[in-house]
Simulated assay, not measured.
Amino acid sequence: MKNIHTITFHHVLNYGAVLQAYALAKFLKQEGYEVEVLDYRPSYFMFQTYRPAKGLLKTINKAKKNIRFYKFRRDFLPLSKNTFFSVFKLKKKFANSNDYFICGSDQVWNANLTKDKIDKGYFLDFLPKKAIKISYAASMGNTGFDANHTEAKEVLSSFHKILVREDFAQNEINKISNNTIDSSIVVDPTLLLNNYNEILDFSLVPNEPYLVSYLTENSKEVKEYIRKVVKMTGLPLINLGHHYIEDAQKNYLYESPSKWLGVFSKATMVCTNSFHGNAYSLIFKRNFTVFSRSTKKELNRRQLTLLENLGLEHRFIYKIDDLKEEHLKDIDYNKVNPKYDTLVNKSKKLLIDAIENLDSKEV
């Protein structure tokens, strides 16, 4: 049986990040592999996770959220026994390993998130040549390699298989390598699972139909968008997003991933501008609309690519005036499911083939 170690952004206060870490590990275990998530905690993430918030109440709520995320990781992530606070510790631990290592998903190659440099932990640059190095749905967001392109080319050339989440990452790899490093595009690991029953907690789910908002911005446009959807649907609003919404019946900003996902999974309608909000709407077959981001609009490409592949690009709303009753009609998942299954199965095959059909690069 092959031993697989994954490394990703698992120790952050972000629902999508923690759930994608869970999903990849769970999928690999279902396929019969021994899996552990490397408990890698670089200092820059530790500071973000544990620093006080602005104001006493927010600091207390953040502490509660940290405890809830800790319990989720403890109960549902197959974490390594060792915690690694540096690449040096990783290198020392795996100096003689010939196991399989997978970096991703999430924006593990986004230098803006890793102190403007390549974090060698997330590029698996701590391993001996005999170890098998694979990326799965690795992303760099909207940030290219730029100043780090020489180093990036060097570390990526040692990978046995590179699977990325977006065409932007694929294009960047082609650019820095002059098309000499192959890569393929795959779906986010959250889409690899069709059953989340193990982690779902429905204790916050109301008895009546409701609207969920999962929005990463707090702009004027976002507020107007959600008000319009509430008015058009007549549904009570439950906010699961990053910012408090006054008009919401409930604001669940600090709940555990299990309770967050439980509420999300039963929503009558979802309003989001988040990639993982889009992904979980599809996983749970929810009606949804995706609203354009007000800033960093280049990140819209992630949602649009997924929606276009499924014939659902009409659910993307560019501006408030575009929102019509037709955008809130029930989605016919009987038409969507075959395209969805094809997309997901292709990604599963690419990942399993990468694990089963690769040998060490060591001569």
Score class of each variant (00 low, 15 high):
287 N>F: 02
319 K>G: 01
328 L>I: 07
319 K>I: 03
302 R>P: 03
262 G>E: 03
321 D>V: 15
293 R>A: 06
327 H>T: 12
267 A>W: 13
287 N>A: 02
278 N>F: 08
277 G>Y: 11
290 V>Y: 13
298 E>P: 01
331 I>K: 09
310 L>T: 12
300 N>V: 09
254 Y>A: 01
268 T>D: 11
276 H>K: 05
307 L>D: 01
303 Q>F: 07
338 P>F: 14
324 K>I: 10
322 D>A: 05
265 S>C: 03
285 K>F: 01
290 V>E: 03
259 K>H: 00
296 K>E: 09
296 K>P: 00
322 D>W: 04
308 E>G: 06
319 K>C: 07
318 Y>A: 09
313 E>P: 02
293 R>I: 12
271 C>H: 04
321 D>P: 01
309 N>S: 09
344 V>W: 00
254 Y>M: 02
260 W>D: 02
308 E>L: 08
298 E>W: 04
257 P>M: 07
308 E>R: 15
280 Y>V: 02
291 F>W: 05
260 W>Q: 04
286 R>F: 00
340 Y>G: 03
302 R>N: 02
260 W>C: 03
336 V>R: 13
341 D>N: 12
343 L>P: 07
313 E>F: 03
311 G>F: 11
276 H>M: 05
313 E>A: 11
292 S>H: 10
259 K>V: 14
294 S>Y: 09
280 Y>R: 11
330 D>K: 09
251 N>R: 09
298 E>S: 12
329 K>D: 01
296 K>N: 12
316 F>G: 01
315 R>I: 08
325 E>A: 10
256 S>P: 00
333 Y>A: 05
275 F>V: 00
292 S>L: 14
328 L>F: 05
272 T>C: 07
305 T>H: 03
256 S>H: 08
259 K>R: 12
301 R>F: 09
326 E>G: 00
291 F>A: 04
286 R>K: 15
292 S>V: 14
277 G>P: 06
316 F>W: 10
285 K>S: 05
263 V>P: 01
275 F>W: 08
333 Y>V: 10
263 V>M: 14
294 S>E: 06
271 C>G: 10
324 K>S: 05
338 P>R: 15
296 K>D: 10
339 K>A: 06
299 L>W: 08
324 K>M: 05
299 L>S: 06
316 F>I: 07
259 K>G: 00
328 L>W: 07
334 N>L: 11
283 I>K: 15
254 Y>P: 00
300 N>A: 10
283 I>A: 04
332 D>Q: 06
288 F>W: 14
254 Y>N: 02
316 F>P: 02
279 A>Y: 03
286 R>T: 00
257 P>V: 06
306 L>M: 12
309 N>R: 13
310 L>F: 12
256 S>G: 02
294 S>W: 09
